[in-house]
Design a binder for these strands. Structure first.
Length: 559
RNA sequence: UGACCCAUGGUGUAAUGGUAGCACUCCGGUUUUUGGUAUCGUCAGUCAAGGUUCGAGUCCUUGUGGGUCAACCA
């Protein structure tokens, strides 16, 4: 009953203020506007969760709008992946829209703007125009084409549209103010000539509208009430407003742009350019490499949509630059999987144990709970026999009292099975232990209710029966970079900080029940971590990805 | 030598002029057939200096520090 009221973030605050000042709730409408030029990453997830979260909170529609105004970079493949990722995250958009849907409307409006004397065709080189643009501290100078007649502009713009000019030879510019303190207001380009095939409009157009000209008008057309973007667009706001002013009908809703800080994660990079570089240079295996901060990478790694939503919610939003500790993301997935992932046993670095007083040829199928955190998860049967594998690091010939695991002369419990005692070891010519000989307490079976079964021993180990074990490839991932903020180190390239050990491939043994596992099924390998079945799995070859290890306070004690 | 944005524990955020709180991380205790989980606890913060006010993290001024802005990218 603690009616603790959740505080509003600053965007919600703005909306509440607008509502208090007369905007009605039914006018609220949002959008998520990715450019289909790459895969979505965890930073986009923040924006997705923000926009769709607002939609849920205010019962308002949220459009998925592809900002596809640059045919040179955009592809259908990216459109498909983005739709998949948004759905996978658990959100439903109202309308699927494309900026390219508005090319004709934008063109018609541009003609009107020319007729109003607010735009002109410039045929200078981009170098000349850049020179005239000035700098943040110096005003720009007017183009020699700035005062072309309306008729001439109309004729030239038509020729641009008709493909009569070469790429790069002409642009349409808004006539605003070359001396404006805001560089974006110094006669920005509205259209450029691009003789490229567009993934949706094909070859219908050879002029394409720029982002600024497109975005506000698209928001206006869709009657988006709050157009939320990241901080680097702050200085575009003046232009956004100027463009909306050119077509605004006061009877309609006027969209407003508001900006928040993009979410950065420690030990990774987030820019599409850099992620693309990792993919193209083969540093990772693809956009969905489990080490990538992409939604598809996290999905393949074993992250749940729920955990990513919780992460976004917990990290919150603000207007300051940030680098969120990846430990928070890892906490979110561990917390989720702890409640939902079935427990199984797998040995990643095996050493053989022979239980000398266990009859040769005998096998038992023992009962094991699937999830101690969830009674409804039920039980399964796990085979036990005379020879088993345990982890190498779970045995020492000698150790101090802090070491709760198996050592000569000492007892441990095998999870869901018996208590065993290490009696001797067999070594090869190099002194490497090849077998550990143990005896077991025949009365100590877990759950049997006997006095011996209730005995307290300090350590409990996971294990697999050698005879029944299934071989599996296990891919153990570590952070991709060794530096918290790899892309903000002065004079250094982010790739200087690549972690050479970000992937370790192990040949492991897992309990037989895992033979039935399907791609993306998630498990806790007890005492080790959370793992999921990779898509590389075939009928004959099981592959697991380690999502995240369990907290290991023993490893910490060991320094 | 400009304009704009930002500044709260190690990290991410809250406090809307009135008790600086939450989560993660770190460290420690208890419980435990996972050295997991759960649970209890410890350490730790308002960039600085002035001003307004009964009262300032919050408002004002000036500094300091960080970021953004000059693609025919978005």
């Amino acid at each position: 009953m603690n009616e603790e009221k959740k505080s509003l973030n600053f965007i919600e605050q703005i909306i509440e203020d607008d509502l208090a000042n007369g905007l009605t709730q039914d006018k609220l409408r949002f959008r998520f506007p990715p450019e289909p030029n790459g895969y979505l990453h965890i930073g986009h997830a923040a924006s997705i969760c923000l926009n769709f979260g607002l939609g849920l909170r205010y019962n308002a529609p949220v459009n998925l709008r592809f900002d596809d105004t640059n045919p040179a970079k955009e592809e259908q493949e990216y459109v498909d992946s983005i739709k998949h990722d948004v759905q996978w995250l658990g959100f439903t958009w109202d309308k699927e829209l494309y900026s390219s849907d508005y090319f004709q409307q934008l063109y018609d409006w541009a003609v009107e703007i020319i007729k109003n004397g607010k735009a002109y065709v410039d045929d200078q080189s981009s170098e000349e125009m850049a020179l005239q643009k000035g700098t943040p501290t110096e005003p720009g100078t007017d183009s020699k084409n700035r005062n072309r007649s309306i008729e001439e502009n109309l004729a030239l713009f038509l020729k641009m549209k008709n493909g009569d000019f070469e790429e790069g030879s002409h642009v349409l510019r808004a006539k605003i103010d070359m001396k404006h303190v805001n560089m974006h207001m110094r006669d920005p380009i509205m259209y450029r000539i691009l003789k490229r095939h567009h993934h949706r409009t094909g070859n219908d157009w050879c002029i394409y509208p720029m982002y600024d000209w497109t975005h506000g008008e698209s928001d206006y057309l869709e009657q988006i009430s709050h157009s939320i973007c990241t901080l680097e667009f702050k200085s575009h706001r003046d232009l956004y407003d100027w463009y909306v002013d050119q077509v605004y009908d006061p009877a309609k809703l006027r969209p407003k742009q508001r900006e928040f800080a993009r979410r950065n994660l420690s030990y990774t990079v987030m820019s599409k350019r850099k992620l693309l570089q990792l993919v193209e240079e083969g540093i990772v295996t693809g956009w969905d490499d489990p080490r990538m901060p992409t939604i598809s990478g996290l999905r393949r790694r074993g992250y749940t949509p729920e955990s990513i939503r919780t992460f976004s919610e917990t990290a919150g939003i603000s207007k300051r630059d940030n680098v969120t500790d990846v430990a928070l993301l890892e906490y979110c997935i561990k917390d989720d999987l702890n409640k939902t992932a079935p427990r199984v046993m797998a040995v990643l670095d095996p050493v053989k144990v022979v239980i000398t007083n266990y009859p040769e040829g005998k096998e038992e199928w023992l009962t094991a709970e699937n999830n101690q955190e969830d009674e409804s998860a039920g039980f399964r049967e796990v085979p036990f026999s005379r020879e088993i594998y345990i982890e190498k690091e779970d045995f020492r010939e000698e150790a101090n009292k802090k070491f709760f695991r198996l050592k000569l002369g000492n007892e441990v419990r095998l999870k869901n099975a018996y208590i065993i005692k290490a009696e001797s070891v067999v070594k090869d010519e190099n002194g490497e232990i090849t077998e550990i000989h143990c005896t077991y307490d025949t009365e100590s079976l877990s759950g049997s209710g006997t006095e011996a079964s209730q005995r307290k021993v300090k350590g409990t180990l996971h294990w697999v029966s050698i005879k029944h074990a299934v071989k599996a490839e296990v891919r153990v991932y570590d952070r991709l970079f060794t530096e918290e903020a790899p892309d903000s180190q002065k004079d250094k390239d982010f790739k200087d900080f690549l972690n050479p050990d970000s992937l370790t491939v192990l040949e492991a043994f897992v309990e037989p029940s895992l033979k039935e596992a399907n791609v993306l099924d998630r498990f806790q390998f007890q005492r080790l971590g959370y793992f999921c079945v990779d898509k590389d799995t075939t009928e004959f070859h099981l592959v697991f990805n380690r999502t995240v290890p369990l907290r290991d306070s023993w490893a910490k004690m060991e320094e």
